[in-house]
Design a protein around this nucleic acid. Structure first.
Length: 568
RNA sequence: GCGUUCGUAGCUCAACGGAUAGAGCAACGGCCUUCUAAGCCGUAGGCUACAGGUUCGAGUCCUGUCGGACGCACCA
């Protein structure tokens, strides 16, 4: 419907160009959108406002001309008026408005799906939590965001690959291995002092126990974790992570191991490419400004292998090798992102925590250097989750082992509740998660409100059958005339645009907000109108309407990975 | 110090550069002999942190100030 109005306007503008109102060949941008205020019609365009600068006319005068040039079909567009500073507002005829009910019932689960992403491949990397411990709430936010974004993009026609980057190389992994080995030897009766660095969480002991059960005391005499122990530890932690993800209904298409980059010499390959381009050099970095005076004194200037990321907008050049000659995490990440680029995706999305914000420029610099493309990668930063209990902040530290795991939270509440809670904020605003509120399953979490609307509609269906009645195949929709009914229909009609906007802007939170609005409109309607009227025609028309509502609620909840219960 | 990001009702948050800035919670007052009251209706609550600028039009874009969060080699 919006497209139709756009086309109509386009034609009118072409005509006006021929008449000399606009200079020939000018680009004439304008927008058609649904006005917030409902007495501004069903659709509205800012064309006259935006385009008046190309003419001598005032916006309202130009709007007059556009209006005259429009060839309107009165059976679809009942009214068309100039309002405010020069908006042109379109009002649909009731027949055409009510038509969406039929559209929805025909399309079913397909309603709201779009095709603008068709033929494009998009990769989304998310979670990528280090396999050194269970997932915590912060990971959960990224996990849910990434999962829902993927679903929304798929619903828009994209081919989406969900990938998890496993940081299974580096110092942290050694620490994990040594932590497990320490517990393992302790459990087997050795009296030991803990290693200098180790993870204290309970899960470390569990892994050690499993190791004993599986392999007995073969590693008892080791002081440093041998590779098989490290591998065992990583594999077990990854299994925990998969469990947590399963519990939230999140799956990945691809698990990419950092270690393979090292093992297959991929880092050397990408460094060779950068060398060819003259972007590597041995240099000495300035001490960071953040250091205090004493820290600056301790700063050890040493030559390192550096990448000229400043040429691509980064603040300083970035080291690719550590003092001991090992590659930095960044070096592996350059190789990883080059690999992604070579896999031929049209777009890459990374979902990262806000604490990685300072990392974006250098990765984009690396991609720009290697591929020449500057807009291939989009990074969505998830702001921090502040965990509170009864309003008091809960301090979390992996080092101290006192963090609250994602698993605990999901168990205490539900996957649906956690999903909705996280999704009803835009990703770049901080998020407070109060354990007591979430556990209370109160109305503070509107997921129940939306689900309840769905359950209520299903309940009407049950009532209908209990009374031995049937929903008619055909219904006279023109009987739907009340304000509440038309409001509901308007909302139903806007759903596809909501999904499209969510996909285009990478903003999943638009869906839950829409669903709350739709549920509100439904609850209002339900309280004021009886569906199971004695008049069969009215009843059938209303049944069609609420079936359409049920369908959109189910589709929307489906996009969020949330259940649409038939009863509550 | 530099960078990123945020600042909207008492609280938690919405608002593709559009028209009179909206929800939920909390507060107050109503609605269950009828399809689920996990619901509905109403009242109250705002100089969108502050000051300039761009625009026909700014919570939204630009500059500055104030305040919070996150980050700033040799971790990942």
């Amino acid at each position: 419907m919006r497209r139709m109005i756009e086309t109509l306007l386009q034609r009118a503008l072409e005509q006006l160009t021929q008449e000399g109102v606009f200079p020939a060949g000018t680009l004439l941008p304008f927008k058609v959108e649904r006005p917030r205020e409902k007495n501004h019609g069903d659709f509205s365009t800012n064309a006259a406002l935006v385009l008046s600068r190309w003419t001598d006319l005032k916006p309202r005068a130009l709007a007059e001309k556009i209006l005259l040039a429009l060839s309107l079909d009165r059976s679809t567009l009942a009214d068309c008026q100039i309002a405010g500073p020069g908006f042109i507002n379109f009002t649909l005829s009731t027949t055409s408005l009510l038509g969406v009910i039929t559209d929805i019932l025909q399309a079913g689960t397909q309603y709201g799906r779009g095709s603008f992403g068709r033929g494009k491949r998009i990769q989304i990397e998310f979670v990528s939590a280090n396999p050194t411990g269970p997932m915590h709430v912060g990971h959960g936010r990224g996990a849910i965001f990434g999962d829902v974004l993927a679903r929304i993009l798929e619903a828009s026609g994209y081919e989406v690959l969900r990938e998890y980057y496993i940081n299974d190389a580096g110092h942290q992994i050694e620490v994990l291995g040594n932590s497990v080995l320490y517990r393992y030897r302790q459990k087997l009766g050795l009296d030991l002092s803990p290693p200098e660095e180790f993870y204290p969480g309970e899960y470390v002991g569990e892994i050690a126990q499993k190791l004993i059960e599986q392999e007995g005391g073969v590693w008892l005499s080791c002081h440093v974790a041998p590779q098989p122990v490290v591998d065992f530890a990583v594999a077990t932690v990854l299994a925990y992570i998969r469990q947590d993800l399963d519990q939230l209904g999140i799956r990945f298409d691809s698990w990419f191991s950092e270690r393979t980059l090292h093992r297959e010499g991929r880092i050397e390959q990408v460094l060779a490419l950068l060398t060819e381009k003259g972007l590597l050099y041995q240099g000495i970095l300035e001490p960071p400004k953040a250091l205090s005076a004493t820290e600056t004194e301790e700063w050890e200037a040493r030559p390192q292998l550096l990448f000229r990321s400043t040429r691509f907008g980064d603040e300083v050049d970035r080291p690719l090798q550590k003092g001991d000659g090992q590659y930095t995490y960044f070096a592996a990440d350059v190789a990883y992102h080059f690999d992604k680029a070579q896999r031929g995706f049209d777009r890459l999305i990374n979902v990262w925590g806000a604490d990685h914000g300072g990392y974006i420029k250098r990765v984009q610099a690396a991609l720009a250097a290697l591929t020449g493309k500057t807009d291939l990668l989009e990074v969505k930063l998830m702001q921090m989750v502040n965990l509170t209990r009864g309003g008091e902040p809960v301090r979390m530290s992996k080092r101290a082992g006192n963090f609250v795991t994602l698993n605990e939270i999901v168990e205490e509440t539900s996957a649906d509740a956690v999903r909705f809670w996280f999704l009803t904020r835009s990703e770049n605003s901080g998020l407070d998660f109060d354990l007591d509120l979430a556990v209370a399953k109160s109305n503070d979490n509107p997921v129940f409100y939306v689900q309840y609307a769905h359950a209520r509609i299903c309940s009407v269906g049950r009532q209908l059958r209990e009374k031995g009645l049937e929903e008619g195949e055909e219904a006279d929709l023109s009987l739907l005339q009340s304000q509440a009914e038309l409001d509901l229909v308007r909302l139903l009609g806007s759903y596809p645009e909501i999904v499209e906007n969510a996909a285009k802007n990478f903003e999943p939170h638009r869906i839950p907000y829409y669903l709350i609005e739709l549920a509100t409109a439904f609850h209002t309607y339900y309280n004021g109108h009886r569906i199971l009227e004695s008049d069969i025609n009215l009843r059938n028309a209303r049944l069609k309407l609420i079936s359409a509502v049920r369908c959109v609620l189910a589709n929307g909840l489906g996009l969020l990975g949330i259940q649409a219960p038939e009863s509550m």
